[in-house]
Computed example of a mutant assay.
Amino acid sequence: MDAASPSEVRVPGDDPRALPVRCRWCGGEQGTVVLDLGDQPAADHFPPVEDPGPDPVHPLRMWQCAVCGLAQLAEDPTTPEEPRGAEPAAMIAQAEDAVARVLAAGLLPAGGGTVAEFGSPHGGSWLDLLAAAGLTEATPGSPADVVVDCFGLMHAADQAAGLAERVAAVADDGVLLLQFHTLAAIIADGGWNALRHGHFAYYSVPVLQGMLEAVGFEVVHAFLFDLYGGTVLLAARRRGRPGPADPVSVRSMLEREQAAGVTDPAVVARLEEATRASADALRERLVELRAQGRSVLGYAAASRAVPLLNRAGVGPDLLPAVADGSPGKQGRRFPGVPVPITAVDEIDRRRPDEVVLFVTDLLDEVRGRLPGVEEHGGRWVVVDPAVRVVPPRTGPSPT
């Protein structure tokens, strides 16, 4: 097997896997490890490219609570330090769609109101969109008519404290909007590499509904989007408060996810099989390309690519570089494997035979931004996490 990474070092101290796991939401200690990726570097730690390592590694396991059903990180001794990513066009479009649908559902206060937003290190904000709908940003510390959390709550190590903070920010007659990548989609897509340090919780609609009910809120609307294979937005109010509601959307979403087995550890544990399939397939393809003398680069230094490259044992001998639009990541490298991160224009300069894309939702955006890949006979290969070659365009490139 090819050498793929600088030497790794286990962090000092006792192995946290020897300690009992306690649920980050309900405090329960009964549960099941449904996915174990072994020792992995922190997925938000991108060292400078000149840093030879070794990189610290930590256990990376998903544990599902038998009491409340929340899938979560079993342990995480890492310190968050993720460089803020560039916001993909797909996420911008989804935010616009979400605000339009929330507005159409009558969930925003008529005649204006206030809004507070809990941000995410992944970038993106709904504040400008909500300002266009007549809302103004609430004074810090004051309750808001609308509280938005887009992929933020998952970053709270203490889920009970994180949800309590958001609930406290909602005015008495206000609405809480929570958006998340649903566990149902992760299971359906075999998206095991959604598991990463710093992402403490992996929500499903039934579980998050139960969490909200425990703090006196009821889910009144549920929206589903294609982003990341399945992104859900739940709207919730304090129990008994009047306002628009769509119980059919909530009930259908609950039934859909319960049928998918999101609270069944045996179903969630199928992600373990998906790790081998996607990691092995990626490595086999890159080895084949090297044997054929064909050049390859990657695109999108996403956190989800970190466990994938490490699990597959892919270093710069197989993947010379990954381009990324975030200036904060350029000039750095992947942890665990010293694959450098470059500016996007390196793809046009090097003209690779194939470009491996690690975030499927970026495909339309990057094809439009980098038409030269296909104009020069190159191909896009999507890994998120399944590996597939994207068919070439049949018409002219978009302008």
Rank of each mutant, 00 (worst) to 15 (best):
P244I: 00
I341D: 00
D14C: 08
L233H: 13
P83M: 00
L19I: 10
P242E: 00
V381E: 04
L297E: 14
P385T: 02
L183I: 03
W192S: 00
M91S: 12
L212A: 11
V33H: 15
V344Q: 10
V67Y: 10
R17L: 00
A214C: 11
E82K: 15
P265I: 13
D280H: 05
R10P: 04
L70Q: 08
S7C: 11
V366N: 05
E75P: 11
G53T: 09
D51L: 11
V366M: 04
V344K: 13
V366D: 01
W63I: 00
V220N: 04
V373Q: 14
P398C: 10
V33Y: 15
L370E: 00
R304W: 04
R379N: 11
G198W: 01
I347K: 15
A236C: 09
A93V: 02
A71I: 06
P88F: 05
C150R: 15
Q159T: 03
P265R: 14
P80I: 12
A279V: 06
E137H: 06
G298R: 14
E257I: 05
G111W: 04
D246F: 10
P352Q: 04
R285Q: 07
V322Y: 08
G69F: 01
G191T: 01
G293M: 06
H58Q: 04
V232G: 08
A279T: 10
G124V: 03
A184G: 11
Y203D: 14
C68T: 05
G162E: 06
L212Y: 12
A201L: 07
L233T: 15
G162V: 03
D44P: 05
R285D: 06
T78P: 06
R351K: 08
A3V: 15
M1G: 15
P47I: 10
E50Q: 03
G315H: 12
E273N: 11
M62V: 09
A236L: 05
G141R: 05
L135V: 10
G106K: 06
G336M: 06
